[in-house]
Amino acid sequence: MPLELFSQYLFAGITYGIIYAIVAIGFNIIYNTTGIINFAQGEFVMLGGMISISLNSLMPLPLAIVCAVFITMLFGGLLEIVFIRWLESPSVLRMIIITIGLSIVIREVALHIWGDGVRALPYFTGNVVSSVQILGASISPQVLWALAVCSIMVLMLSLFFKFTSLGREMQACASNRLAATLCGINARNMVTFSFMLSAAIGAVAGCVVSPITSTQYDMGTGLAIKGFTVAVLGGLGNSMAAVAAGLLLGIIEAFSVGVGFPLVFQDAIAISILLVILFVRPHGLFGNKEAAGLKEF
């Protein structure tokens, strides 16, 4: 494989990989504070894209994106308050079914609001044909935008969890909810914050990839499965490992197309990886086996 082609596939893989990583981080944030997987995580990405596209006709692009992220964030918080906050120690099965139901309803409402057409935000800089030469490959400037925004977001998140008091309180809830409550942390509010945070980062991802991959009402399920694959691959709950796992999956997918694997089976690759990982290393590639022994798979 010539170098130009190699770097072309590599960049395509990294672009998709970073999006999967963002969805996986969204899963992890909620999983850490509540122990549940939010099956509606992919819908946040769709909502971010769709709302920003609608707002863009009323206001300049940067403002539309900020508003879309803010609206999606409030929506995430609202979902938690209405559907999850008041349940007394719900079973895992119950939570799975509720979040699946939410994802269906959000998708159907989106279908009725925005229709089943494919929409996209305009390119942040340049247009469809403009490109930058890197290592012999022609890269759309939007790819660089996506990489930059997502990298900054991951960095900010890790700083947020390490150095802000809110981030540390969420961490405390994640590691031991009872102890955190005894220290005066309002655990329920932390759960709401975690939904808002993961809705917001999902929406940001939805905005930056919209020009490249475009936005459709039913994009959520596919993203949720890929994101979950990545989260499990990295070890559920471990956000930094999710970035590495996301890049890995994205690059595998891109090169599988490169070597002539049928495009329609691209999803099947991710799912097969998921199944194999679940059976062989349920604690993930980077997870700790002993720590995982305490969790239920």
Binding site: I36, I37, F39, V92, L93, I96, I225, F228, V232, D267, A268, I271, S272, L274, L275, L278, F279, P282, E296, F297
Partner: peptide, 20 residues
């Protein structure tokens, strides 16, 4: 293999099978 899993993992694994 699938029924060794529980909860979220079982849900996602069977969902994955359906999608394949």
């Amino acid at each position: 293999p699938v029924l060794k899993l529980k909860g979220h993992y079982l849900a996602m694994a069977t969902l994955g099978f359906g999608i394949i």
